[in-house]
Design a protein around this nucleic acid. Structure first.
Lengths: 222, 222
DNA sequence: TCCAAGGTACAACGATCATTGCAGTAAGTA
DNA sequence: TACTTACTGCAATGATCGTTGTACCTTGGA
């Protein structure tokens, strides 16, 4: 999980071996296979073939299949969360018009981002397999991924609220509401990315989610 | 999927055999095992043992494992949807105060209902395994379960809207928003029912969801 | 009492799979 | 040049599993 000690020479250390490259290739290939097939169905041979690596290397690097799965979960969650946090900062950093800005944010957030589709399929696998995954792994995943993203969104919403644009009592909960309204229905309808869902429909759903987040559905308007 | 012809004698037909009982026991037992372990991990032997039935009976009744899985999906979806639709009718049939009534509905909707917990675990398995389930099965499941429930909620929301309590342009979408705000966060936090979540917290989340559904988060109040 | 339908126990087959050991190889380093 | 490190290919092992065939039992109805 964490590097024991930094053996960082002051001078540039030449790529001492392909060790790190193989590890990277394995994390990427295993993500694809685990995302498609799930933990049990995914075979070590398939993963090795997809990563361009021998099965023996998997065991040398990770120990066993469960450890590889856990490494993939944490790695993929961190990478995706990094991207999402960048998106949040880019679109919620400066608010001019709260509705326009949230709608633009929602459209980007709800966009497929095809290179991250495997990650979301993996998340579905985690949800389904939670009963067979170590507690520590689940916690590590939550902290490095979803919770980090939620915290980022919540902090932005709080700031926007103090600026007078929003009424937010529980920022974490508001963050959950926002992302669920924006993308909740989409993720259930774009099964494992197999059904792409046209962009226009995607924007319609996301826009409606943002408006619901802001105004609600009660008819006390005007 | 559908009974070919009704061989219904006019007089009470005595329980001709245990055939239907075994089928029922199998659907119930298989639901538990599939929900806990997922399709691939669940073994026929385990299912047979849990249902109090020989493995041979499974093959005689359903043909193979995949067919049993599909039968379980559709059966469980129908039963759960029936319950949910009854809840919708009971709590949204007559509206006195829109906020009070929705909050009461939300609390019931978000309640664990421990006897249906396996179904929701099964739904997570379906979401994860969608790529390995026949299109026809997925469609049948959607129609007999989630879509039926969504339609019921949407119709009630439309009626409530015409009565002047709500502003609803897309009733289906509004229905999705409502259930996601009420229970969206809960289902992700009560992993396979292992973490029960205290009732007070559950009500807090559900109430906040209902209020967000009605009023939104914008600070244009008063 | 006898029949037939449906259930059970049991053994077996073939396939898949995680995991390990071993022998060989390529490449960086002393 | 010799040593070390990490990767590869291959074979083997032990376990699990879906599926089938078979012989036997139970029970409700003719």
């Amino acid at each position: 999980m964490s590097r024991g000690q930094d053996s960082a020479d002051p001078k540039e250390r030449p790529p001492r071996s392909t060790r790190v490259d193989k590890r990277r290739a394995l994390l990427d290939g295993a993500l694809l296979v685990f995302a498609e097939d799930g933990y049990t169905r995914a075979s070590i041979d398939t993963i090795a073939r997809r990563a361009g690596v021998s099965t023996r290397t998997i065991y040398n690097q990770f120990g066993d299949k469960a450890a590889l799965f856990e490494a993939v979960i944490v790695d993929s969650a961190r990478r995706t969360a990094d991207e999402q946090i960048a998106t949040v900062r880019r679109y919620l950093g400066k608010i001019v018009d709260i509705e326009d800005d949230l709608i633009e944010f929602g459209r980007v957030w709800a966009s497929p981002a095809p290179e991250h589709a495997p990650h979301f399929a993996l998340v579905r696998q985690i949800h389904a397999d939670a009963g067979h995954i170590a507690e520590t792994t689940l916690r590590a995943w939550q902290e490095v991924g979803p919770l980090r993203v939620r915290k980022e969104i919540a902090e932005h919403l709080s700031r926007i609220a103090t600026a007078g644009h929003l009424t937010v009592t529980d920022a974490d909960l508001a963050a959950v509401h926002l992302v669920q309204l924006i993308a909740g229905d989409i993720t259930t309808r774009t099964y494992h990315g197999a059904i792409p869902l046209p962009v226009a429909e995607l924007h319609r759903l996301s826009d409606a989610g943002v408006r619901a987040f802001l105004h609600g559905h009660i008819s006390a308007r005007h």
